[in-house]
Protein backbone atom coordinates (compact mmCIF):
# COMPACT_ATOMS: atom_id res chain seq x y z
CA UNK A 1 0.00 0.00 0.00
CA UNK A 2 1.34 3.37 -1.03
CA UNK A 3 0.92 6.49 1.06
CA UNK A 4 -1.13 8.04 -1.73
CA UNK A 5 -3.72 5.38 -0.91
CA UNK A 6 -3.36 5.81 2.84
CA UNK A 7 -4.05 9.52 2.43
CA UNK A 8 -7.41 8.74 0.80
CA UNK A 9 -8.43 5.92 3.13
CA UNK A 10 -10.60 6.20 6.22
CA UNK A 11 -12.22 3.87 8.70
CA UNK A 12 -15.71 3.01 7.49
CA UNK A 13 -17.03 1.52 10.73
CA UNK A 14 -20.63 2.39 11.61
CA UNK A 15 -20.76 5.26 14.07
CA UNK A 16 -17.25 6.50 13.40
CA UNK A 17 -17.34 10.23 12.76
CA UNK A 18 -13.71 10.95 11.96
CA UNK A 19 -11.98 7.82 10.79
CA UNK A 20 -9.10 9.64 9.10
CA UNK A 21 -6.17 9.27 9.11
CA UNK A 22 -5.61 5.65 10.01
CA UNK A 23 -2.54 5.22 12.20
CA UNK A 24 0.18 3.08 10.63
CA UNK A 25 2.02 0.36 12.53
CA UNK A 26 4.65 -0.77 10.05
CA UNK A 27 6.28 -4.18 10.30
CA UNK A 28 7.72 -4.30 6.79
CA UNK A 29 8.24 -1.44 4.34
CA UNK A 30 9.55 -1.93 0.81
CA UNK A 31 10.65 0.59 -1.80
CA UNK A 32 9.73 0.24 -5.46
CA UNK A 33 11.01 2.76 -7.97
CA UNK A 34 8.48 4.38 -10.29
CA UNK A 35 8.97 7.07 -12.91
CA UNK A 36 8.24 10.58 -11.70
CA UNK A 37 5.34 12.49 -13.21
CA UNK A 38 5.64 16.14 -12.22
CA UNK A 39 2.20 17.05 -13.49
CA UNK A 40 0.60 14.31 -11.41
CA UNK A 41 2.56 15.32 -8.30
CA UNK A 42 1.46 18.93 -8.56
CA UNK A 43 -2.13 17.83 -8.96
CA UNK A 44 -1.97 15.46 -5.99
CA UNK A 45 -0.30 18.11 -3.84
CA UNK A 46 -3.57 20.04 -3.85
CA UNK A 47 -5.48 17.01 -2.53
CA UNK A 48 -3.03 15.60 -0.01
CA UNK A 49 -3.66 16.10 3.70
CA UNK A 50 -0.11 17.13 4.41
CA UNK A 51 0.02 16.49 8.15
CA UNK A 52 -1.45 13.00 7.72
CA UNK A 53 1.09 12.43 4.95
CA UNK A 54 4.10 13.52 7.03
CA UNK A 55 2.99 11.45 10.03
CA UNK A 56 2.46 8.42 7.82
CA UNK A 57 5.86 8.85 6.15
CA UNK A 58 7.52 8.98 9.54
CA UNK A 59 5.67 5.82 10.59
CA UNK A 60 7.13 4.21 7.47
CA UNK A 61 10.63 5.29 8.47
CA UNK A 62 10.98 8.19 6.03
CA UNK A 63 11.76 11.52 7.71
CA UNK A 64 12.76 13.77 4.80
CA UNK A 65 9.49 15.68 4.42
CA UNK A 66 9.02 19.19 5.83
CA UNK A 67 6.41 19.66 8.58
CA UNK A 68 4.55 22.14 6.41
CA UNK A 69 4.49 22.65 2.67
CA UNK A 70 3.12 25.19 0.22
CA UNK A 71 2.77 25.09 -3.54
CA UNK A 72 5.84 27.26 -4.17
CA UNK A 73 7.96 24.32 -3.01
CA UNK A 74 6.81 22.39 -6.07
CA UNK A 75 9.34 24.40 -8.08
CA UNK A 76 12.14 22.65 -6.20
CA UNK A 77 13.45 19.43 -7.73
CA UNK A 78 14.64 18.30 -4.31
CA UNK A 79 11.19 18.71 -2.81
CA UNK A 80 9.52 16.99 -5.78
CA UNK A 81 11.89 14.04 -5.44
CA UNK A 82 11.09 13.63 -1.76
CA UNK A 83 7.37 14.09 -2.29
CA UNK A 84 7.39 11.55 -5.13
CA UNK A 85 9.39 9.04 -3.11
CA UNK A 86 7.17 9.19 -0.03
CA UNK A 87 3.91 9.28 -1.97
CA UNK A 88 4.48 6.61 -4.61
CA UNK A 89 7.63 4.59 -3.90
CA UNK A 90 7.21 3.56 -0.26
CA UNK A 91 4.97 0.53 0.26
CA UNK A 92 3.57 -0.80 3.53
CA UNK A 93 3.97 -4.52 2.93
CA UNK A 94 3.12 -5.89 6.39
CA UNK A 95 1.58 -4.10 9.33
CA UNK A 96 -1.64 -2.70 10.71
CA UNK A 97 -3.87 0.31 10.04
CA UNK A 98 -5.54 1.51 13.24
CA UNK A 99 -8.85 3.39 13.35
CA UNK A 100 -8.20 6.66 15.24
CA UNK A 101 -11.61 6.55 16.95
CA UNK A 102 -12.20 2.91 17.82
CA UNK A 103 -8.72 1.45 17.80
CA UNK A 104 -9.94 -1.22 15.38
CA UNK A 105 -6.98 -2.83 13.66
CA UNK A 106 -7.07 -3.47 9.91
CA UNK A 107 -4.29 -5.92 9.00
CA UNK A 108 -2.05 -5.30 6.00
CA UNK A 109 -0.64 -8.43 4.38
CA UNK A 110 1.41 -8.65 1.18
CA UNK A 111 0.73 -4.95 0.69
CA UNK A 112 -3.05 -5.39 0.79
CA UNK A 113 -5.05 -3.73 3.59
CA UNK A 114 -7.99 -5.86 4.71
CA UNK A 115 -10.79 -3.34 5.16
CA UNK A 116 -13.58 -5.91 5.47
CA UNK A 117 -15.89 -5.02 8.34
CA UNK A 118 -17.45 -7.39 10.84
CA UNK A 119 -21.21 -7.75 10.83
CA UNK A 120 -21.68 -5.51 13.86
CA UNK A 121 -19.54 -2.79 12.26
CA UNK A 122 -21.68 -2.30 9.16
Amino acid sequence: MRLITHNMLSSNIKGVVNGFPLRIEAEKVVEKTVEMNGEFLKKMFEKIDWKAFVDASRAMGYTELPEEADSSMLDSDEFLNRFHHALLELHLEEGVLVCPETGRRFPVSKGIPNMLLHEDEV
Binding site: M8, S10, L117
Partner: peptide, 24 residues
Amino acid sequence: VEREIEGDLLLGDMGQGLGICPEV
Protein backbone atom coordinates in the same frame (compact mmCIF):
# COMPACT_ATOMS: atom_id res chain seq x y z
CA VAL B 1 0.14 -9.32 -6.38
CA GLU B 2 1.87 -12.24 -8.10
CA ARG B 3 1.48 -10.45 -11.43
CA GLU B 4 3.12 -7.40 -9.84
CA ILE B 5 0.45 -4.97 -11.01
CA GLU B 6 1.23 -1.31 -10.44
CA GLY B 7 -1.95 -0.20 -8.73
CA ASP B 8 -2.63 -0.26 -5.00
CA LEU B 9 -4.94 -2.99 -3.75
CA LEU B 10 -7.55 -3.10 -1.00
CA LEU B 11 -9.47 -6.10 0.30
CA GLY B 12 -12.95 -4.76 0.89
CA ASP B 13 -16.66 -5.19 0.33
CA MET B 14 -18.30 -2.67 -2.00
CA GLY B 15 -21.55 -3.12 -0.12
CA GLN B 16 -19.87 -1.79 3.02
CA GLY B 17 -18.81 1.45 1.39
CA LEU B 18 -15.52 2.53 -0.12
CA GLY B 19 -13.80 4.20 2.81
CA ILE B 20 -12.20 6.56 0.31
CA CYS B 21 -12.30 10.27 1.07
CA PRO B 22 -14.67 12.42 -0.98
CA GLU B 23 -13.61 14.47 -3.99
CA VAL B 24 -10.39 12.56 -4.51
